[in-house]
């Protein structure tokens, strides 16, 4: 008699707990703006460590890449969340796609221009009339501001996926992400002291990069859900930078699955640079916050380069913690 009661009670508790859990559990997907690498370590770690699950989110991490433009996918409803540069986000918003920024992960520019010292480039002025390899679209913005600042006329050679054009001597200088291509250059046998490096952020160019976005509708329907997603993502980032080896194991697994042909040394570099980029001045409390001044600067830049006509209102755009 007592045994039966206990069994029934157990089944009841389990089923209530189970259904209760399932009731809060919401499916969602995240599309990073590029192929799996440590640039997205925080999300990979949060997923693998169950931080999203802890937040009641059944997340699917979609594979990013050139064939998956994140905002397009977001607008098309193929992804609940995406990552993207602030400038892209602003442009999307200005052009009518109702996206909102729910967190600003990389709060400054990781973009840099790299040149061989042997090509005679030692200071910004030396870039005048040189061939500079630049990626298209938004990657072009900050370097263009830089050239304008120093009144440089450079011969821009479109750069696509790799730095091999630079390594083969096709260009005198190339744009590179600090956390990615710069290390590729270093690990192609060029030493730091053989290179001249211009960090755009060092020249007063405010250009926050990776942020988390969703459609305004998603946010309006369930701001709490969006907040939980952001918190779990930030928790993932904090865990990743504090548990480097574990995070790298996770990142490497994702990279292997995507055949990106990377190596651990490269991902370690990238993770460490992400650590430098996401925890900037102001300490952990400012993690994920979008700076209105930087927003204005990027907006102005987009207007100046005729990407947009008008800068959307900050309040409409930024729905994350401020």
């Amino acid at each position: 008699m007592r045994k039966t009661t206990l069994l029934v009670l157990t089944i009841f508790v389990l089923s209530v707990w189970g259904t209760g859990y399932a009731a809060d559990f919401r499916k969602a997907s995240l599309l990073p703006q590029w192929v799996p690498q440590a640039q997205f370590a925080g999300y990979m770690v949060a997923l693998r460590k169950g931080f999203y699950r802890d937040a009641g989110i059944d997340l699917t991490l979609l594979r990013g890449g050139p064939e998956n433009p994140p905002f397009k996918k977001l607008a098309g409803g193929e992804a609940t969340f995406c990552t993207g540069w602030l400038s892209n986000g602003i442009q999307e918003r200005a052009s009518g796609t109702p996206v909102v920024n729910i967190a600003q992960i990389i709060r400054r520019s990781a973009l840099m221009l790299v040149a061989r010292k042997s090509s005679g480039i030692l200071q910004p002025q030396d870039l005048n009339s040189k061939k500079v390899g630049l990626w298209a679209e938004h990657f072009y913005l900050a370097p263009a501001v830089f050239f304008k600042k120093f009144d440089l006329t450079v011969q821009i050679i479109p750069n696509h996926t790799s730095v091999f054009l630079f390594l083969r001597g096709g260009v005198d200088a190339t744009a590179a992400m600090w956390y990615n291509e710069y290390h590729t250059i270093l690990n192609s046998g060029l030493d730091q002291d053989e290179l001249t490096v211009f960090f755009l952020k060092d020249y007063g160019i405010k250009f926050p990069e990776d942020g988390l976005y969703c459609l305004e509708q998603t946010f309006k329907e369930d701001p709490e859900f969006c907040r939980r997603f952001v918190d779990a993502s930030l928790r993932g980032w904090l865990y990743a930078v504090e548990h480097e080896e574990e995070a790298l194991d996770i990142v490497m697994k994702c990279a292997e699955d995507a055949h990106t042909g990377t190596n651990r040394a490269h991902q370690r570099w990238m993770l460490r640079r992400m650590r430098d980029l996401i925890t900037p001045e102001g300490g952990p409390s400012s993690l994920g916050k979008l700076d209105p001044a930087a927003y204005d600067a990027v907006g102005k830049m987009l207007v100046d380069f005729s990407y947009i006509d008008r800068v959307p209102k900050f309040e409409d755009f930024s729905r994350g913690a401020r």
């Binding site: 270093l186 690990n187 192609s188 046998g189 042909g261 990377t262 190596n263 651990r264 040394a265 490269h266 370690r268 570099w269």
Partner: peptide, 18 residues
């Protein structure tokens, strides 16, 4: 295709390999 002489040098902390 994944590793290079330089990534190995970095992972193994072996400047001579670089």
């Amino acid at each position: 295709m994944r590793e290079s002489m330089f990534s190995l040098a970095e992972e193994r902390n072996d400047p001579q390999l670089r």
